[in-house]
Simulated assay, not measured.
Amino acid sequence: MFSLKIVKFSLVLFYVILCTKTMNVTKETLVQIQELLKYPRWKNLNDVNSIKYIEKIYNLKSIIEKPTRLSEYAQKVRILTVYLGCSYAKVMNNLFLIIIKCLQISNNKNKEKNDLLNGYINTEELINIIALFIVPTATLMKGALDTLDLLRKSLLTTSKIKDYQSYIMILILEKIEDIINKLNNPFLSCDVTNFSTFEILHSFSNNVIDNLKYETELYCEFVPYDTNYLWNEWNQKYKAIIDKGVKIVFVKFLTRKINDYIKTVIIEKYIQLGFNFDPITEETFVPTSEELIEPNDDLEFK
């Protein structure tokens, strides 16, 4: 009898400790989410009208401003994750449409001139653009979405919604992060023509566009826009520069424009949303401080 009482007491004590820890984690998570949503840029993610989640339509502004019960916070964070994923999808769609345009133009010129060497340089420079700008951006985006998803999972103990295993964009971003490894495959040796690399990059870029279309059709309602607007805008600016007699290779001009575009994206859709990057662990995190700090955009971007 005595031993049975000890066992019962131990079980009660165990559950009290467990519940206390859970409540503390939940409280800390709630503070993180509340402070995160104080960053005004959340209300300015204006490229997505609404998102669809569990057969319901949600508007971002109403989700942010609506007072939420503890039991609903996990769902709220999930909706924010989907919304941000939609916004990130548009960015990646813009970038890979430009990569495809450049590959097509380069390939057409090479066929006309039979200039394989020039084609190799152009393809390699596009690979460098992907490695220097697009892959790191995909890493930051995935980090932001991972961070939100972890905050959501820490709230699931008080939530009635199911724990979905993944979120919009996760597989696409992982593939983008891995493309350089694929292009550096040792089986693509020197005696293999450049078109092997070209075809891999072209096929990969088209695959990204197709996957983005599939996922965004399921979840995202974008503000209507011309998908080629960025390419058309940059092309016109390049022609204006050339008409003034300034000599600049298009791919160099393109590199500058993508650099500027990526910088704006990282500042507006990452830093100004309250996400931080740890250069040591190479991970994204949300500050736990209760004080809302306005980030130094230039410093954080560097």
Rank of each mutant, 00 (worst) to 15 (best):
34 Q>C: 01
36 L>E: 04
36 L>V: 03
40 P>G: 08
42 W>Q: 09
43 K>A: 13
43 K>I: 05
48 V>R: 10
49 N>G: 07
52 K>A: 10
54 I>C: 11
61 K>P: 04
67 P>C: 03
68 T>M: 07
69 R>A: 14
70 L>M: 07
70 L>E: 11
71 S>N: 15
71 S>K: 15
71 S>R: 15
72 E>Q: 15
74 A>G: 00
75 Q>P: 01
75 Q>D: 09
83 Y>G: 04
85 G>Y: 04
85 G>D: 03
86 C>N: 01
91 V>N: 10
95 L>H: 11
95 L>S: 11
95 L>W: 10
95 L>K: 09
95 L>T: 00
95 L>C: 02
95 L>E: 11
96 F>G: 10
96 F>D: 09
98 I>D: 11
99 I>S: 07
101 K>G: 01
102 C>W: 07
107 N>Q: 13
108 N>I: 09
108 N>A: 11
109 K>P: 02
118 N>C: 01
118 N>P: 02
118 N>L: 12
120 Y>H: 08
121 I>R: 10
121 I>W: 08
125 E>W: 04
126 L>W: 01
128 N>P: 00
129 I>D: 04
133 F>W: 06
133 F>P: 04
141 M>R: 04
143 G>T: 08
147 T>G: 03
149 D>R: 08
153 K>R: 14
157 T>P: 03
159 S>M: 00
159 S>H: 01
